[in-house]
Amino acid sequence: MNKFNSMITVALLAVTFTACKKNSDEPIVVVPPSDGNTLTLNGLVGTELGSAAGNSVYLDFSADKQTSVARSSWDLGFYSGADFRVIINNTTGAGAKVITASNASLATVSEADTLGLTLAVNQANPANTDFAYFDAINGNLSNTVIPAVSATAADNKIIILNRGTGGGIAARSWIKLKVTRNASGGYTLQYGKIKETTNFTTVDIPKDANFDFKFVSLTNGAIVNVQPEKANWDLVWTYSVYQTLFSNVLVPYNFSDLIFLNNLNGVSAGVVATSTVSYADFKESNISAVNFKNERTAIGSDWRSTSPATGVKIDIFYVIKDVAGNVYKLKFISMGAGDAGTRGKPVIDYKLVKKG
């Protein structure tokens, strides 16, 4: 009986080894990048106005994929790179302030510490000083409201957060929070509503090298999916805190229909005037004349106009270089009353010009 069992064991090992060897010799299938497509972006959650579209929409040209994520589904993003940084949700108009008192704690910070604070964009009378409430619109991680998370737990401050009501988001309780590093190489978040003195929620957030950020909702303390993996998106269409001139002074302002690039992972963009070359005629030989910018706001709001009626600009198009080096030309077709489009559901066209 033992001899019979031994023979079966040897046979199974041989089959397993052969199967593994066969699998290792199989070719790896590489999916070629998309040649292009025409897409209608799904910016609307429900029946909200298009100017207050509830979704952010992430686009991956090479995969012909769009990913819609409710702007209100997250509050904090925890950076997975070498540094320890936390971002707040500019797409809801969230604002924050650091409590600098050395003896401040989650138990002692209260509503009294919010007196005189709005931590929000004043659309009617914006002020340059209000930039201090928001993360840098260019995505610079050295300029976040929440300071870099120190390895010394006691050095990390209490933060007051207004979760934001930008673009029709329902008002929610203000939050007080503290972030420290944990022994696993990630973050520990402790938070509660501004009136709480006990029973704070604790969440551990690991770093994940496949993503730029891991996101947390303060509604229930859950880690939620927001951005796709960092190599799998090129740009995002969204409502967000941006900037404008008000009485000749640069101020923060909430904008609809913004385009931000995945610049942290090398995506860049350049603008082309149709008076130079048409969208249809633009080809690989024209790429060398494009001034590519690896900036989050390289497109911003410049692709559309709100006067005399909201619509796309027809005298320009864009050229996008993605993470893999693929080059696409991108044209906005419609987005509002001025071009017979639907606000909150812009239509785009993109074509592969050069494979990376």
Rank of each mutant, 00 (worst) to 15 (best):
K157N: 14
N90C: 04
T244C: 02
G266W: 04
G192H: 11
T219V: 00
R343Q: 13
G81S: 07
I159Y: 14
P27S: 06
A82D: 12
P206S: 09
A107K: 15
T144G: 03
G270H: 12
N326D: 13
N23Y: 13
L261C: 05
V251I: 12
A340E: 04
S150G: 08
A324W: 04
S275L: 05
V312K: 07
A309Q: 14
T201S: 12
E48M: 06
I316L: 10
P252W: 08
N140A: 10
T92P: 00
T118G: 01
S334Q: 13
S150Q: 04
Q66S: 14
K329W: 08
T9Q: 05
N128K: 09
I316Y: 09
V45K: 13
T67C: 01
V109S: 04
S68D: 08
N262H: 09
G338I: 10
N156V: 03
S24P: 00
A63K: 15
Y133W: 15
F332K: 01
K195R: 02
I287F: 04
L106H: 05
S105H: 09
F134T: 01
L235F: 15
N55V: 12
L106G: 01
N162M: 02
W233H: 06
E196Y: 13
F200W: 11
V121P: 03
F255L: 07
Y279R: 04
L117A: 03
Q190K: 15
G81N: 04
T100W: 07
D113H: 08
S72F: 01
V121L: 10
N326K: 11
K3W: 05
N210S: 05
D281W: 04
L76M: 14
V31Y: 10
K193C: 00
T198V: 15
G116V: 07
G139V: 09
T197Y: 02
N140Y: 09
I87V: 15
T144Q: 06
Q123L: 09
F332Q: 02
N291V: 11
K321D: 00
K21I: 13
I259M: 10
P33L: 02
L218N: 03
T197P: 00
V277G: 03
R71C: 07
A132T: 11
P27H: 03
V251Y: 07
V98I: 15
P27C: 03
V29F: 13
L13I: 11
V121F: 09
A94E: 10
A289M: 03
K178I: 08
V319A: 12
N5F: 14
R343F: 05
V216H: 06
E48Q: 14
